[in-house]
Write a protein that binds this DNA or RNA. Structure first.
Length: 470
RNA sequence: GGCGCCGUAGCCAAGUGGUAAGGCAGAGGUCUGCAAAACCUCCAUCCCCGGUUCGAAUCCGGGCGGCGCCUCCA
């Protein structure tokens, strides 16, 4: 398969270094707040990449997603809340797990948090190695990385520092730095701040060092894929490269996978600092389903900005309904027989779907292939050219599609918890059938409208009445 | 000011040199007690202007517009 690599700015064929296990690190949340749907656009994109690597390319995974549970904001917010740092960040880690579960993200192999001893120790080992090799200096009790000691610094972001806007915002750090681009590895702490001492003196981690350390400890010196949002390219990922490569002497990540932003209708990036933020639970409270949200998040290629709007979410819901209606219909096929042309058509769709995934995870292209197949098969069902003998081939294909998309499984889990008890629905359907037999259509329509208002839709067919969630 | 991305139908969105996938919405039809679902039909020449080419939405140049990064940020 081919993946776009930010490092080379082009698509490259991807094969894990050892040929069978993908070692992937994706930057996780800073847990001072609940993640918003922009964050989850990224997590969902990485989830699909992971699923493609596993279920399509057939690789084993060793995938690490961290929690940044110490930085200026987590410290500040926990102090404001009057809660110990660890306890404060625990809440948002728990919230993340809930949201991840709601959106059907596959569990990853490791979820380290920065303040675990093993990770702090790993950070200090890197810092010590950098110090030995002359890449650091001390200023005001903090340890800095010295950019000037790394000739190829900037190879990922490719920023032209000569052309940077003069003045203003380059050096906002309150500490003394020799060069504006130097960054802190280990921060001096002020009284009352959490402090650790694992061999480089008391202090707390700089932002970038944790990812380098956790990736190295759990995945080794060179990893296959490092993922993040595009906003992390600079400075975060650039600095991770600097630290790790100068400490180990090996290339850090072979592929850099960056996901574009989700932006709001009004055209602004959704971010905590701007304040235009919706969480997964906000979306659910508006009456939308998580499956629809997941579908929407997948409906734009990961390297393009996704403009979020409630109208788009409505459209996603409708598209998903079409898919679910088809799958339901498939289960009810009664005509016997097997048709080789159906198997051919399905095989073709599987091939095309896979080709889309191979081309830099083209999910919108892949869903196009899938819906094309839905129409063909719906038509085949209509005129009896799809028999019970064909059904397993078809369901097999759609199960595979969903192993990647993960949207049908979510929807089915939601269906298992209808807003009206199943027993009651069935009683009402029975009552309505009796009314219809007596040609009392007023009563029949009343029951249908009543259920509709409660979120249950009825559909009549020659073989009886079916219900589904709205 | 520097670097980069993007601009495809009413909406969302693939396609990046060979004559516009898919979804939503809309119109007409078939089916239905009525609906729903489903099917059939219809609905774009790709922001603008130049250029390269037998041929461009796709490549090049110039505009216009939107967004991102350069600062914490998925």
């Amino acid at each position: 398969m081919f993946l776009y690599n930010t490092l080379s700015r082009q698509e490259e064929e991807f094969v894990p270094l050892d040929g069978h296990t993908v070692r992937m690190y994706s930057c996780g949340l800073t847990v001072y707040n609940r993640g918003h749907i922009g964050n989850f656009r990224y997590f969902t994109a990485v989830d699909v990449l992971r699923r493609v690597l596993r279920h399509h390319a057939g690789y084993a995974m060793r995938h690490v997603v961290n929690f940044t549970d110490v930085d200026d904001r987590t410290i500040l917010e926990s102090q404001k809340a009057g809660v110990p740092l660890r306890e404060y960040t625990d809440r948002f880690i728990e919230a993340f797990r809930e949201d991840a579960d709601t959106l059907g993200l596959e569990a990853v192999e490791e979820n380290p948090r920065a303040t675990d001893d093993a990770n702090l120790r790993a950070m200090c080992e890197i810092i010590a190695a950098l110090d030995e090799r002359g890449h650091t200096y001390l200023s005001d009790g903090s340890i800095y990385f010295k950019i000037a000691t790394m000739p190829d610094y900037g190879k990922l972001a490719r920023l032209d520092h000569a052309g940077m806007k003069p003045g203003a915002r380059v050096d906002t750090d309150k500490y003394e730095k020799e060069d504006a681009r130097d960054f802190v590895l280990w921060k001096a702490t002020s009284p009352g701040e959490p402090t650790w001492d694992f061999g480089v003196g008391p202090g707390r981690p700089g932002w970038h060092i944790e990812c380098s350390a956790m990736a190295r400890r759990l995945l080794g010196d060179t990893i296959d894929i490092h993922a993040g949002g595009v906003d992390l390219i600079f400075p975060h990922h650039e600095n991770e490269i600097a630290q790790t490569e100068c400490a180990t002497g090996h290339p850090f990540a072979r592929f850099w996978f960056h996901v574009e932003h989700l932006i709001m209708d009004d055209g602004e990036k959704m971010s905590k600092s701007v304040g235009n933020v919706y969480t997964v639970s906000d979306v659910l409270e508006r009456g939308y389903r998580a499956s629809a949200l997941r579908y929407l998040l997948l409906s734009v290629h990961y390297r393009k900005q996704l403009k979020f709007s409630w109208a788009n979410l409505d459209q996603a819901e409708e598209a998903l309904k079409r898919l679910m209606d088809f799958l339901g219909r498939l289960e009810r096929v009664a005509v016997e027989g097997t048709h080789p042309e159906i198997a051919d058509r399905v095989a073709g769709a599987r091939r095309d779907f896979g080709a889309m995934l191979d081309a830099d995870v083209n999910v919108p292209g892949a869903t196009g292939v899938m819906f094309d197949l839905v129409r063909t098969l719906n038509a085949a069902i209509d005129d009896g050219r799809l028999g019970t003998g064909d059904v397993p081939v078809v369901t097999g294909a759609f199960e595979w599609f969903d192993a990647i998309l993960g949207v049908v499984a979510l929807r089915r889990a939601e269906e298992a918890r209808p807003p009206v008890p199943v027993e009651e629905i069935e009683q009402l359907i029975e009552a309505r059938q009796a009314a219809r037999r007596g040609r009392n259509f007023v009563e029949a329509d009343r029951i249908r409208a009543d259920l509709d208002a409660r979120g249950i839709v009825l559909e009549d067919s020659p073989t009886g009445t079916r219900w589904k969630r709205k």
